[in-house]
């Protein structure tokens, strides 16, 4: 467990360092995710070490949103002043993204002869 956690933190640290040094727009932890994925593909032993720890962290992913979400207490005036615009943007864009994403997947799967589990 402690080895897995160390490796996850090392990947994050490496990701933060590289993105900052190179001035990339990608957040450090995202690059860290790509690095960890590459390491897991390269070594099955390492992957077996990471899976239980990673699954444990992700099981309560929603808890980790809470401290930032409570920040809404400081934004109530902004939200009240822009409520309609923000609500429309969120609802319409989410419905559109779902429809376009799933539609594109089905279309390309059909064109490339991929098997669809209908």
């Amino acid at each position: 467990m402690i080895h897995a956690l160390s490796l996850i933190l090392i990947c994050q640290l490496a990701g933060e360092t590289v993105t900052r040094l190179a001035g990339w727009p990608i957040p450090g932890p995202v690059l860290g995710m790509a690095m960890l994925f590459a390491l897991m593909l390269a070594s099955t032993r390492l992957a077996a070490l990471i899976v239980p720890a990673g699954t444990g962290i992700l099981r309560h992913l929603s808890l980790l949103f809470v401290p930032a979400a409570v920040g809404v207490v400081g934004h109530l005036p902004v939200l009240a002043a822009n409520g309609l615009g923000v609500a429309l943007a969120l609802i319409v864009s989410t419905v559109l993204a779902l429809a376009v994403g799933a539609g594109t997947f089905v279309l390309v799967a059909r064109l490339t002869g991929g098997r669809g589990d209908a």
Partner: peptide
């Protein structure tokens, strides 16, 4: 509030790295 909650908030970074697990 955040002085206490920051310890939970900090874990968002490692959790992002851990998203490599479902991908793998």
């Amino acid at each position: 509030y955040f002085e206490g909650a920051q310890f939970v908030h900090f874990l968002l970074g490692p959790a992002t790295v851990a998203l490599a697990v479902p991908l793998w």
